[in-house]
Nucleic acid binder design. Structure first.
Lengths: 231, 231
DNA sequence: GTCCGCGTACTAGGATACAAGTGCGGCACA
DNA sequence: TGTGCCGCACTTGTATCCTAGTACGCGGAC
């Protein structure tokens, strides 16, 4: 009989292929590979110590995320940041996360709420320490957890994957004084609404929170005009 | 000076790579490659007349859509349909399209509405002809147009890409009498709400419409139990 | 001096060759 | 006859080779 189901589920997330993709994405999102830059599969391959095959695989995935554009026989380029793409990314994130949090507000259990509170406490510490890197990690973890509570963890995966352009903007934004504190406060009101089981309030708080990121876009664009498409 | 922008935009959507992906996806969604089936890169390659390279590229994309599962050194398998995955797909589609149509209701112009009406008329013809294939095409076109009117065409792209599991269910559903007519009627009320510029009504109508597809899930599962994961 | 045209060096796309690892069947043995 | 082990055939992962096609620069003609 033909084998129909893989017997051992490969949970090895740390494969070489995945690592190459993660490194490339991080390099692009962090603007280490700046928008508009030309990439060479050969160059990337020798820099990461692998051949073109895994590089190409990663580039295909990044193209699906609109982080690179592949021009046959020409080259591969880090896409310029476009206000349209940023708007699209924000739209997707808002749609998915706001829908998710409505469900989360009706499904969260005490244990879930405890985990959220623990995250918020850690965020306060990161804020006190001015540790933006740690804060970013906690921020993502909080949103991921909230999506997971909806029963549709895929919402976070898709949001993450569609948000390359938005992430680049976020990374470019300079830390303004009081910014972290504001973020923590918004997170607190979102969690509070979830704790009270109020979907409308949770959605409103989250929507407001997500739109904060967009507010810094004009400043970023002014500071790095060559990273953006002329529109 | 370094070349920074590809001068000639490749609009050739009909590349070999894209074709392989489209054919494979269609074969899976239509259940010609039934859920659970083991795939071989070599076999697929010779059947489609290409080497493993483009096949692998397509499989990676299909894995991102959860239509196949790749087990290293073991094989590649068409994923079984799971109620969780179908629910996820529906959740994503509802979140994206309902958010999009709210914007569409406030942005649609007369020309846009005329196009929507033309589509509805064509749907009526397809219904009269009992032409399910033509209807499916018009159905997709209508939803795509509505998403496009929101200004975020990406909503449709993502919805489409996340909806592999849902599409498989849709294709498996047997044509029930009156089903097409019901669909057309729902489409009409959605378009009517958009025409009136009423976001709330449009969202409600679309949400109701999208949930109709899910209602056939239990019957499908009963008819094809071996296509589904045991849950 | 300016402009046109060809050659070179690069690109990605694809095909092939090699490596590492798995499942299954057949064979030896109790 | 039942059972355990070993080897083969197959899988995907990776590396390398070849091909078609593009941009750019140099050289010659005007």
């Amino acid at each position: 009989m033909e084998l129909r189901i893989p017997l051992s589920e490969r949970t090895s997330g740390g494969s070489a292929r995945e690592r190459v993709y993660a490194m490339l994405r991080e390099a692009i999102v962090s603007a280490e590979l700046e928008p508009g830059r030309r990439l060479s599969e050969n160059e990337l391959g020798e820099r990461l110590g692998v051949s073109r095959t895994p590089i190409r695989e990663a580039l295909v995935r990044l193209r699906d995320e609109r982080l690179v554009a592949i021009a046959p026989q020409l080259g591969t380029f880090v896409t310029l940041i476009s206000t349209q793409a940023v708007g699209d990314a924000h739209f997707v994130r808002e749609a998915l996360e706001c829908s998710a949090i409505r469900l989360a507000a009706t499904r969260a259990r005490d244990g879930d709420l405890a985990a959220l509170q623990a995250n918020l406490a850690a965020q306060s510490h990161a804020e006190a320490d001015r540790d933006a890197t740690a804060f970013d990690g906690l921020d993502d973890a909080l949103h991921k957890t909230l999506c997971g509570l909806s029963g549709h963890a895929i919402a976070w995966d898709l949001s993450r994957r569609a948000n390359g352009h938005l992430d680049r903007v976020r990374r470019l934004s300079l830390p303004e004084p009081g910014y972290l504190g504001e973020m923590v406060a918004e997170h607190r009101s979102v969690v509070a609404a979830v704790a009270q089981g109020d979907p409308d309030a949770a959605e409103a708080a989250l929507r407001h929170h997500l739109r904060m990121v967009l507010s810094s876009l004009p400043a970023i664009q002014a500071a790095h005009p060559h990273y953006f498409e002329e529109s």
